[in-house]
Structures are given as C-alpha cells and as structure tokens.
Simulated assay, not measured.
Amino acid sequence: MRGDESFLHADTGVTSELFVERSLNEIRFWSRIMKEHSLFLKLGFRAEDTQLIQEANQFYKLFEQIEQTAHVLTNQTDPERIRRFNTEVQQAATSIYMFKRKVLGLILTCKMPGANNFPLLVDHVSREANYFRKRLLELNEGKLNALPDAIIKENVFFLRIMADHAKFIGHLLDPSERKLVDIARNFSNDFDQLLFQAKDLESMRPQSQTVPLLDQFLDQNRVSVSSLRDFKKTARDLIEQCRIKSIIHPLLADHVFREADRFLEIIDMFDAHLTSSTPQPGNSN
C-alpha cells in the first residue's frame, strides 16, 4: 500500500509528496467504505424510515462524488489543493459519523423496532468514520504518530474491526450453515483475545515499545488476519455463487474482505519499517 510511509516515520514531519500520496490513498479507500456503509444502513432501515433512507442516499451520492474526485487527482496535485480537499472530506466524514451515531441512538432507545441494523454494526461503522475524519485532521496538521505508537494504535483499532466482522458473519449466515457459523465464532474468539493482548501492550507503554515485542506482536497478528482474510474471500466467493445460505449482501462480503486486506498491508508496512529502523550490529545509533 503506497503512501503509508508518512505515519510510520519516527518524527512527526510529513513531506509534501508523502502528504499528497497518503491523503489520496486514505480518501480513495475510505470514501468507498463510507459510500458502502450508506447502502448497508439503508438496506437495514424499515420502509417507514423514509427520512433516514433519504439521508443515507444523500451520503451515498456525496461519498461517490468524493471517491470519483480522489481518483481524478494525482500524486502531482498541488499540496494546497489536497489540503482543501482533505478539509472537505473530513467535514463529510464528520457528518456521516454524526448520522450513524443518531441511528445508533434511535436503535438503543427502541425507536426503530423491527429494523435490521445491529447496534454493534452501527457503532462499528461510526468508529470507522471517526478514524477516517481523525486521519485527515492529522494529515492536514502534519502530525502523525511515531512508529511504536502507530503500530499499537493501528492494531488496536483494526483488531477490533476484525473481531466485529467475525461476529457479523456468524450472525448473518443462516443458522443451518453450522460449520461456517462455528468457524466465524472461533475467529471472533481469536480476535477478541488478540485485541485484549493489544490493549495490554498499549497500557504498558512506553516500556512495552521494544523492537522484539512489537515484531512478535505484528507476526502474531499477521497469522490470524491472513487466516480471516482467506475465510472472508472464500465466503465472498461462495455467496456470489449462491452456494451457501445467508442474508449477507455480496457487496458486504467483499467490503469486509477489502478491510482485512488493508490491515494486512498495514502490518507488512509496519514490519518493513520496524526492521529497517533497527540498528544493525556494529552500527552507531
């Protein structure tokens, strides 16, 4: 994943080239995710939720336009133009975050009986919107986490996302798909444990931020994320071929696969930079 270098640097400075590349990388990925969230939320609303359906449609169109613009812009675009674009997109991400939290409030206060959006799913998609908006703010401020902090922070975020995905898959598969439901449940338990481990490492900072510990942390997470990514790919293919019973939209199956794939790319990028930043024997620091 090109462009991840900017938040891996030990300092907080971001060059103009990395700023543009990283900004476009984030917006191209997450604007599509936000667009699809709008669709998934709409599909879970009741027929009488006309206002919410209209708002979801508006967000879908908004992020579709953002996605198209991001693909027109290039790494040679003037950084000031990108800075303004980041601000526009950050405002859109903030708006959809507030919309998602409003929907969550309606569900939790039992004002939408019979709707089909799980509260955890709505919370999940709002966390991703908040992640997106905060990333754009950090980019525009030229402030990104140093390598050790970034490794732990990003893994805590994405491990929770992966644990949620496993739970959603398990609940949206038909109960008669007993083997697949059992596999999804096992993944859920696995990622819950990985998340607890990551939070333990986080609470032990800065003493826990040693290269050996972080290297093992990344290696262990990579193994589990790779397995989950492969399971999601298999499930996506089976759903598209109508070979298993579920209420999972084919686009949702591809959506969660892409997020796992991105997490793997981030882990690999962290690992490469962690290795390159490790002093070699005989070299001075």
Rank of each mutant, 00 (worst) to 15 (best):
D78Q: 11
I151V: 09
I82L: 13
L139K: 05
N283G: 03
A235K: 08
H255Q: 12
G3T: 00
N117C: 07
V103Q: 07
E48W: 09
E265P: 00
L104E: 08
A115D: 11
R32S: 06
V20Q: 11
Q220R: 09
P281Y: 01
D200K: 13
S126W: 03
H37L: 01
I248G: 06
D192H: 12
Y97H: 13
L147F: 10
L24S: 02
A253L: 00
E138G: 14
N189F: 12
P148F: 09
K143A: 11
Q54S: 10
N86K: 09
R205C: 05
H273G: 02
L201W: 06
L180V: 10
H171P: 01
I244S: 05
A47K: 15
E240H: 06
A115F: 03
Q91N: 09
E240A: 10
M162N: 08
Y131H: 15
K232H: 14
E128F: 10
S188L: 09
H9Q: 09
H273E: 15
V122E: 13
R205L: 05
I82E: 02
T15G: 15
F257M: 10
F118W: 07
A47H: 14
K100C: 05
K100Y: 02
N221S: 14
N221E: 13
Q91A: 12
L62W: 08
A47T: 14
L41R: 12
L108I: 09
P119K: 02
I244R: 01
I27D: 05
Q68R: 07
T234F: 09
L147T: 07
F270C: 07
Q220E: 13
F59I: 04
T278I: 05
M269C: 04
D11T: 12
M204T: 05
E154L: 05
K245N: 13
T50S: 09
I152M: 12
I152F: 00
K245H: 07
I82A: 06
P79Q: 08
Q90K: 13
I247Y: 12
A260E: 12
E141Q: 15
C110T: 08
C110P: 06
E141Y: 04
C242I: 05
A253F: 03
I152C: 04
R135S: 15
K35G: 10
D237Y: 03
R243M: 09
A47L: 15
F270N: 06
E128R: 01
M112L: 15
I66C: 07
E138D: 14
P279W: 03
E55G: 00
K233C: 06
V14R: 05
S6W: 04
R84C: 01
I247G: 10
P175R: 00
V20K: 01
E240I: 07
Q207S: 12
S38N: 15
D164L: 03
E128N: 04
D182C: 12
I247T: 13
R32K: 14
Q65D: 11
E88G: 00
E154M: 11
T77C: 02
I266M: 15
E48P: 02
S126C: 01
L147N: 01
L121V: 07
P212W: 00
F7Y: 10
I183D: 04
I239S: 08
K61I: 02
S31I: 06
A184Q: 00
I66Y: 11
V14C: 08
S95P: 05
A235R: 07
M269S: 15
E138I: 01
N25E: 06
C242L: 08
N116G: 10
S95K: 14
R262M: 11
V211R: 05
M204I: 11
G44S: 04
H249W: 11
